[in-house]
Simulated assay, not measured.
Amino acid sequence: MSGLPAEQDTLPPYHGIALADVRLVKTAADAAEAQAALLAADAIGFDTESKPTFVKGQSSDGPHLVQFADDRHAWLFPLGGDHAHLLPALKAVLESEGTLKVGFGLSDDMKRVRSKLGIEPVRVADLSVVLRVPGQKHDLGAKSAVAKYFGQALQKSKKISTTNWAMPRLSEKQMLYAADDAQVALRIYRHWIALGNVLPALKPPKAPKPRQPRSPAPSA
C-alpha cells in the first residue's frame, strides 16, 4: 500500500464510518441538533480541512470544513460560503469545558480556527503528541496509530486530501474522508484509554491579548 511502511502493506484495511452515519450541517437547525449530540458526549473526534494553496507564499484562508464525530456519527460543518448561522454551535462545542476534543496534528487546525472563526478551543488533546512514547523521535500520525493499536491499514488518499474543500457541494468521497479523520481519532483514544492509559493534564487555553486603550482624539 503506497505511503505505508513495508511491514504495514499486508495489514487488513481499516473500515471507517458509513456514509449513512455522516451528517452534513447546512442549516441553523442542523447545527443545533449537532451541538446537542456532541455536547452530550464525554469525548469527540475533531479535525478541519482547508482548501490547498499551490502558489508559493500564498496563505490559506481555511478552515473550509470543521468536522466532529462521536462513537456513532460524524458531523461536517462546511465554511466555504456564508456560515454565520453555524458559528454559535461551533463555538459552543469547541469552547465546551465538558467535552474533550481529540484529533491528530491539530496545531494548524487550532490556529486557523482562532484566526478565521475567532473561537478559542478548550479541552483539546492532540493525539500525535499524547501517544508518543519515550525514545520516539516523531509524533504518531493517524496511519501509524491505526497500525499500532488496531493492526489495520488506514487509507488516506492524497488525491482527496488536496481537493477543494471550499466547494459549495462536497463529494461523497470528501465527506467520508473528513468524517473518518474525526472518528478514527476518537476510536484510537477510546482504545488507548481502555488499555489503562491516563490522559495528561491539558494546557490551559491561550489568554486573549489585552486590548490597547485608544488614544483620545485631538481637540479641535
Rank of each mutant, 00 (worst) to 15 (best):
V55F: 05
R112P: 00
Q58D: 11
T53N: 15
R169T: 13
L117D: 04
Q58C: 10
T48F: 02
G57W: 13
H64F: 15
E120K: 13
L39W: 02
T99H: 09
A18I: 02
Y149M: 09
F68Y: 04
L11S: 00
P204Y: 03
A40G: 07
P78T: 00
D180H: 10
S144E: 12
R123I: 05
M110K: 07
I160M: 10
A40H: 12
P210F: 02
R169G: 00
K143L: 03
S96Q: 08
T10E: 05
A18V: 10
W75Q: 11
A37R: 15
W192C: 08
K206C: 02
G57E: 14
I160Q: 03
L79P: 02
M167A: 12
A41D: 03
V124E: 06
L79Y: 05
R214D: 13
V133N: 07
K203N: 06
K173E: 10
V93G: 01
W75G: 10
A182R: 02
Q58L: 15
N164D: 15
K159I: 12
S50W: 14
E33G: 10
Q8E: 09
G151D: 05
P13H: 06
R132E: 11
V25P: 02
L24Y: 05
G80Y: 11
K158V: 14
D180L: 04
D126W: 14
G103C: 07
D126V: 06
E120H: 05
D61F: 10
S2N: 11
L76S: 12
V22H: 00
K203L: 08
A89H: 03
P78C: 06
W165H: 00
Q212R: 09
S215F: 06
P12Q: 01
L195F: 00
G16V: 06
W75T: 09
D109F: 06
G103K: 09
R72C: 14
I160A: 13
M167H: 07
V124Y: 02
A40N: 15
H64L: 10
D139Y: 08
W192M: 04
K26F: 06
L38Q: 04
L65R: 09
Q58G: 11
L4P: 03
L117M: 12
F54A: 06
P63Y: 13
R187V: 02
P121R: 14
L106W: 06
D9E: 07
L38D: 08
D71T: 15
G105R: 09
F46Y: 14
G16F: 10
W165Q: 04
G141N: 13
H191A: 09
Q136C: 10
M167V: 09
W75K: 05
V102F: 01
P12L: 03
